[in-house]
Amino acid sequence: MFARLPETGAEAVVVAIDGADFEARAGDSVAAALLASGRLASRATPVSGAPRGPFCLMGVCFDCLITIDGVPNQRACMVEVAPGMRIDTQQGAPPLGTGAA
């Protein structure tokens, strides 16, 4: 539940979040784009499957782990959006052999 202040002056950057186009802004982190799109959760934990979302937004807590352009477990708060970026929320522990930790 976040809203953009009017007249920010930042350019639009279109990304795909779980397959749906979303207009983020230049300078947004992936986490900011996710929250701006109305989503609070970025993943389900590998331990219990509990939903988690951005918490600290400064790279400390690792709760906003998300798949970016096919690479899983990226800190959404530490990566800036780029045009055409594919952002996919994660569900629990990934199957073995799907990419980097």
Binding site: R4, L5, A10, D28, A41, G53, F55, C56, L57
Partner: peptide
């Protein structure tokens, strides 16, 4: 999800002009 730190919310304002 939806519980966030004050620093996180402040960062969203500073970096992205996003407010709750």
């Amino acid at each position: 999800p939806g519980v966030m730190t004050a620093g996180a919310v402040q960062g969203l304002l500073k970096s992205s002009a996003l407010v709750p």
